[in-house]
Design a protein around this nucleic acid. Structure first.
Lengths: 292, 292
DNA sequence: TTTCTGTCTTTTATCTACAATAGACAGATT
DNA sequence: AATCTGTCTATTGTAGATAAAAGACAGAAA
């Protein structure tokens, strides 16, 4: 198999949902736009719809014949890109599984275990190496540096520098900057989750990422924004892995975020800095607590 | 051809130099140690030496039969690793050649031009993407973001944050830390080059990298140290490309470095910060001047 | 006992091939 | 005139194969 057709399958599934809401589908270029794929893929989807008698397709006419059934969808496992699959299995191994720092990483073995070719694993490792958790010995193996206490400290040190600077930029953003509007939306979500915290505390992880990314983006600095990828991936897997006291921790973080948001709104650099510091400090503590 | 034997050729050339100085070579493991290669490669080298009647090889005895001649060496072009070759041709294209921001980068075309397979080019681009100069459109081409003014400003912003923090750490390093000794060596080199600036000003580029890397390392933070790679590569190619006033610029930078070194030695954070700022400011100006 | 060599196995670096996907262009349709 | 479709080409993503290089192990030499 040369290339997985996950792009097709994923777009197909999303297109099935669109189909459920209308009696006829729009033009090929428009569908491509909406689904974020090329016309080639759109036509592949339409062909399949036609085969399965979901639509009657004649040039510009794409009339819906019947509603999609659950079994018309591709299973979700098949729609994940290979890169995602590799990332997940790798992170499971190094974060959850007892992977010792210094351990060697074997491309071939990883590939066999995940069920892919070595090329994809190799490219993943190269991409992943920028996160500072692994290192390559040229002409030889990769070495796992491990999710250690030092790693967390180094990560948070840079994070704090970057976020403080970004927060300082944020307060001086002009009033008509779209970031303010997004901040309002994020704030509303915070309040909604807090109001129903017992049921919805799991939504915090994603919201946390959104909020901090918004702040980092105010820096207008690609290096600062890119660095946030590292933080996001670490916290993402960290939340999945360490669930002790999650409800309580998230509630506290939500409160801190609200104070932080209010400080940003005040346009007062000193207030923003203080709120930012306070939140970052507790985020750091939370992260460190989960490391042996 | 599956793998270039550049490791062999490069180690072979270096081993020829060793051979010129002795009457018999040491054991295989020791040679491997010295050359930084495995025993497999060492044995390949020894076999070739034997074939070319350079040594008489019988188990532990490896007696030198004759001095190496210039034509015993492999040409230097053949000893460069593929990654280096790709990096150089790519940087030439994007820094020197009139590459417009927004330009598409085509893996296949690049590979053909450089004379390699696509895999190597692809892996290079992935590794290179962390420098923020290119960006991938999934399932499609890479986009050149260009060595623009914004790029330089974003780069220097982070550089300044990191280097100021590293310099602050440096002054509080304990007296027996090896960094002080290295600082002394670097200082001596500065003075030597300054004393003969007209002839040796070209050596500055390498020294500059050494010095700033030493400072960054004082941070003990892998993200800060790794980030220095980006600065190093940008300045490296920048120096090669922009040679106007090089002698004068380098002389000034050397003086600034000396002041900076003295400030670090004083163990006074305020002095160090001031000297660091002054130098970074002029480095920033130099970089910006060379961008249209 | 320690270190070295001969031999063998494993792993990486790289090339090539091919299906999936993107994208270009001309003619058809509104 | 603008947009769409049919068709074709070019490029990417991934697997598989292979030479180079690393590395393991047992027996030989010091």
């Amino acid at each position: 198999m040369a290339k997985q057709n996950t792009v097709f399958k994923d777009a197909y599934n999303r297109c099935l949902k669109l189909l459920a809401d209308t009696s006829s589908l729009p033009s090929e270029p428009e569908l491509g736009q909406v689904l974020g794929v090329s016309r080639t893929t759109v036509r592949a989807i339409l062909s399949r719809f036609e085969e399965l008698q979901l639509i009657a397709w004649d040039k510009r006419k794409k009339n819906v014949l019947r509603q999609p059934r659950p079994d018309d969808y591709f299973p979700t496992e098949e729609t994940d890109s290979l890169a995602d699959i590799i990332e997940r299995s790798f992170m499971r191994r190094i974060l959850a599984g007892g992977a010792e720092p210094g351990m060697q990483i074997n491309e071939l073995e990883l590939a066999r275990e995940i069920g892919t070719g070595t090329t994809s694993v190799r490219e993943f490792l190269i991409r992943f190496s920028r996160f500072g958790l692994i290192e390559k010995r040229p002409n030889s193996h990769w070495v796992l540096k491990g999710f250690t206490r030092e790693f967390a400290l180094e990560l948070t040190e840079v994070r704090e520098m970057f976020e403080l600077r970004s927060a300082a930029r944020f307060v001086s953003l002009p009033d008509d900057h779209p970031a303010w509007e997004e901040l309002t939306k994020i704030e509303a979500l915070h309040r909604a989750i807090l109001a129903d915290i017992d049921k919805r505390y799991r939504e915090f992880s994603e919201l946390d990422e959104q909020f901090h990314l918004l702040v980092h983006k105010a820096s207008s600095n690609r290096f600062i924004v890119d660095f946030y990828d590292i933080i996001a991936i670490v916290f993402h897997y960290h939340y999945q892995w360490n669930k002790t006291n999650a409800r309580q921790r998230n509630a506290r973080a939500l409160e801190e975020h609200l104070a932080y948001i209010e400080a940003l709104r005040s346009h007062d650099p000193a207030k923003a800095e203080q709120a930012c510091r306070r939140h970052l400090q507790s985020a750091r503590e939370t992260l460190l607590q989960s490391i042996p």
